[in-house]
Amino acid sequence: MAYDKFKILESTAVPLPIENVDTDQIIPARFLKATERKGFDDNLFRDWRYNTDGSPKADFVLNNPKYSGKILVGGKNFGSGSSREHAAWAIYDYGFRCVVSSFFADIFRNNCLNIGVLPVQVSPGFLDEMFEAMEANPDSKFEVDLPDQKISIVSSGLSESFEITEYKKENLLNGFDDIDYLLNLEEEIKSFASQTPL
């Protein structure tokens, strides 16, 4: 699935200072019945965002008009639990291009990278700095620089570098996906398969 290229992103952010945000919270299972990739943004954080009657919960950050932007900043161990890629789709479709946390669950991190959302892992201290900046001023801007692998808090100039493999970085910079790469390896794969019994 094609996605937009990622280079340098400067944006305000949405804070979600909760630990262990699991993918069942990001998108509850009852919204996984689609056969197409459409309409997941409405159900992002569905049960934290809306009451059972469909009215918005005023105290949830996505309903707070003060906060918006293309960066979602979450607490430690973000994206644990179910492998549902729908969680990453919901985040992308809602308009986020980058998720920041001090720790990510493995499958969620992979899913994000596969669909063009950049997971940025920062130190716990830097994460706190980000939350504080947003609390002090909801319009605080952050810059995520993929070529330089650096994230900064624009107002204070504080910055930290983050890790990503060269391969994934190239993919994101160019909007490529893994399947394009693998399809070019078809002969190698077939010869490998022929030596691997079922």
């Binding site: 492998s83 990453a88 596969n114 399947i179 693998l182």
Partner: peptide
């Protein structure tokens, strides 16, 4: 191990997956 939908597509198409070794 469990995989996401992009990876399901990848395995259907190529019988391979791209993973850093844990």
């Amino acid at each position: 191990f469990g995989i996401g939908t992009s990876e399901v597509e990848m395995v259907l198409a190529t019988q391979c997956i791209m993973q850093p070794k844990p």
